[in-house]
Design a protein around this nucleic acid. Structure first.
Lengths: 206, 206
DNA sequence: TTGAAATGTTAGTTACGCTCACATAAGTAA
DNA sequence: TTACTTATGTGAGCGTAACTAACATTTCAA
């Protein structure tokens, strides 16, 4: 994927640096990457990146932005794969979240470690809001209650937290037997049923 | 707390380095600390730590071990504050988890970021197992079903994941309005009721 | 008392982040 | 074309951090 430059001008350095960092983060861990190594992979000097990124942090931020695109894309695809109200839809969303965490644990960690560098960035805020709304709509449709109710927000939040926590615990303890003590599907359906029951017994103003 | 050495031999360097790192991690973020800065605070040269720790990673690992002691202590205290079966017991546990994350977000993040460096270390494994058992017992007592049932393990795991995820999301988005969109107590009781219902309608072999 | 073990220091190596002055290429207007 | 501007890359060099090696000081125990 990453090819060294042939001419004096690289032509695609900005993108390839992001790509290189994306790889390095998975290979060497969230802290194991360096601008220097990314430069080696792209075949440029260590001063070149500063024509495209302000500093180390800025490069990482843009790498995370790319990752968030991929992340949200998966969530959207999962949401589209089942009709509203279908119990499998929520599980599919959870699994999309989980599978991203498993596929890209390094960048996943960084996505939720960076606070200040992403704050205020319109892109990320919009992305977050989109994801939140997506989940709210799914939950509301499933429970057949208004999107703007407190019940919807609370239950969507509960699901979000659960999947987020489960994802983290999974990638932290990947090889530990403990992680698989409870069958995944059982857990997902148990939580889904508990927080967003199929029989729609939830009242929006309860 | 941290006092510079007066004599040639510091006397308490090992502990003070851990203390310094603990502080630095909160002040400058999980990646913002350095051996050099910790040395400055302890008043020793930058070569001194290597008499007590193998390398940077080793120092961090021991810092995390201390943090885990504090963490588990809180959980234990919370568990002891209410009798078995009392609904408030589970909420208290969740709040203890959450309050640690809020009080020491830096070290909290590191606790769950380090994978390899802690793996295989008997201390940490034991600590993790203890915490897991504690939660299992609380859940089993509350539902009045055996500790060793799959229902117990699954529901304890679900609670664990939820609180873990909630903690992370909280410290990530501390200043964001979104984080407080749902009242905390409402969320905790909603999830508690959903996963571990008070009316004990859960059958251990369902 | 005396030698070994523990614990600290100074100096030096390597790697990285970053900047500066300079080089090369690409685009634009005459 | 030519000439000017802008974009993008290089090499050299600075400061800092992790780590090591050789040496110094203290403690402890035989």
């Amino acid at each position: 994927m990453i090819q060294e430059k042939k001419n004096y001008h690289h032509g695609d350095l900005r993108e390839q640096l992001i790509e290189a960092v994306t790889q390095l983060v998975e290979e060497d861990g969230p802290d194991g990457w360096s601008i220097a190594e990314a430069c080696r992979r792209a075949g440029v000097s260590t001063a070149a990146p500063y024509r495209h990124f302000q500093d180390r942090h800025d490069l990482l931020r843009h790498t995370v932005l790319r990752a968030m695109d991929r992340f949200f894309e998966r969530m959207q695809t999962a949401a589209d794969s089942f009709p509203a109200g279908d119990a499998r839809r929520i599980v599919a969303l959870g699994k999309a979240y989980l599978s991203f965490a498993r596929d890209e644990p390094g960048i996943f960690r960084i996505m939720f470690s960076l606070t200040e560098p992403l704050e205020g960035h319109a892109d990320v805020d919009a992305l977050n809001t989109d994801a939140k709304f997506l989940l709210d709509r799914v939950v509301a449709a499933h429970l057949n209650i208004p999107v703007e109710s407190e019940q919807t927000r609370a239950r969507a939040m509960a699901l979000w937290c659960f999947v987020h926590g489960y994802s983290f615990l999974q990638i932290d303890a990947k090889s530990k037997a403990e992680a698989h003590a409870v069958p995944e599907d059982m857990l997902l359906y148990l939580v889904g049923e508990a927080i967003v029951p199929s029989d729609s017994s939830v009242n929006s103003d309860e």
